[in-house]
């Protein structure tokens, strides 16, 4: 199958208030029929990017093309072929599930009969048929998420934007949603652009992932490619006195170590087959009289990739920057 680009982004930038850079000159491509994910911590610029591409936010700078239409110039055409499942649950909770779906269909000019047929099919798919005629305010969080998916799909979009589709859901519901998302791609050939800050979700669901941090894409590739950045397992060792430690002697005596880094007074060692190498390293350190305080063996995962690239864990508390940015955005909108 020939790879076809459906979203092309070049130098896209969003600066709020002329001072807060939410998205910083990003460029990437999304291929037709793939599940493309943006992975990053809260406030990294994921939602801003998604909202620029779906015409909700005006970019400060940069160029983007969606299915051949130019963002900004052809917004009306873009709006016809995309669907959005936003981060917040935005179905009208004073209407029933079915009323919400039918209303959504009328926004896209889908006629009633077709909409009804599609709605029944989609509701069956996400197992919501029984609740279709109940008011949305009686739905659970998981049910509302699934309804949002149906609403995003009722007009058969070519591209579906999913902004944190499983935010705040329990593990089982999350796995279910992943199934539906995969099914959408497989059955309808929808291209999916999604954001998430769940590593496992990105790993299991996405064909390709862009890791985004502080408004910049810091790595892009398939989950396997990204994990290969690590070149193996990571062993993090805490010792009583880092000054006594000598990288050269360690690499000389233990063969399969590919990288040694010092992070925050800890030693991070990249190696293959960590479980075999770990005892040897401890023996080595003990032999040189270095006292080992703690040991951690980390298997390659996107979490490790993010840690490796940024020095931070993705689930860390929100950095001050993003809180400040939101405050400024809020103020800006008020004007």
């Amino acid at each position: 199958m020939k790879i076809k680009t459906i979203i092309k982004v070049d130098g896209l930038t969003k600066i709020y208030n002329g001072e807060v850079v939410a998205v910083d000159n990003i460029s990437f491509e999304v291929y037709e029929g793939e599940i493309f994910g943006f992975l990053g911590p809260n406030g990294a610029g994921k939602t801003t990017t998604i909202n620029m591409l779906n015409t909700l936010i005006k970019p400060t700078k940069g160029y983007a093309e969606i299915a051949g239409y130019k963002l900004g110039r052809d917004n009306d055409k873009i709006r016809k072929i995309i669907g959005l499942v936003p981060q917040e649950l935005t179905a009208d909770d004073e209407l029933t599930g079915m009323e919400n779906i039918m209303l959504q269909a009328s926004l896209y000019g889908v006629n009633k009969k077709t909409a009804k047929e599609r709605a029944e099919e989609l509701l069956g798919m996400v197992e919501l048929s029984d609740a279709a005629h109940r008011l949305v305010k009686t739905y659970s969080g998981g049910m509302r998420r699934r309804l949002e998916l149906v609403m995003g799909l009722i007009h058969r979009p070519k591209i579906l934007f999913l902004d944190e589709p499983t935010l705040g859901l329990d593990v089982q519901t999350r796995a279910k949603i992943w199934e539906y998302i995969k099914m959408l791609r497989d059955e309808f050939g929808v291209t999916i652009f999604m954001t998430t800050h769940y590593m496992e979700e990105a790993d299991k669901l996405c064909d390709r992932i862009g890791i985004i941090d502080k408004g910049k894409i810091i790595a892009l590739g398939t989950p396997t490619e990204l994990k290969n950045i690590l070149k193996g397992d990571i062993i993090v060792i805490e010792i009583d006195n880092v000054d006594n430690f000598n990288e050269e002697i360690l690499t000389k005596e233990i063969s399969n170590i590919s990288e040694i880094r010092r992070i925050d007074g800890k030693i991070s060692i990249t190696t293959e087959k960590g479980e075999n190498t770990l005892p040897r390293i401890i023996n080595h350190l003990t032999k040189y009289g270095i006292k080992v305080l703690s040991v951690e063996l980390l298997k390659p995962s996107l979490e490790q990739v993010f840690l490796y690239l940024t020095g931070r864990k993705i689930r860390e508390e929100e950095p001050m920057d993003s809180i400040r940015m939101r405050a400024i955005m809020r103020r800006r909108r008020r004007v």
Partner: peptide
């Protein structure tokens, strides 16, 4: 406030 407006704005109406 509740985000329904985004739904309307992102549609071609």
């Amino acid at each position: 406030r509740l985000g329904y407006l985004s739904r309307l704005l992102v549609s071609p109406i």
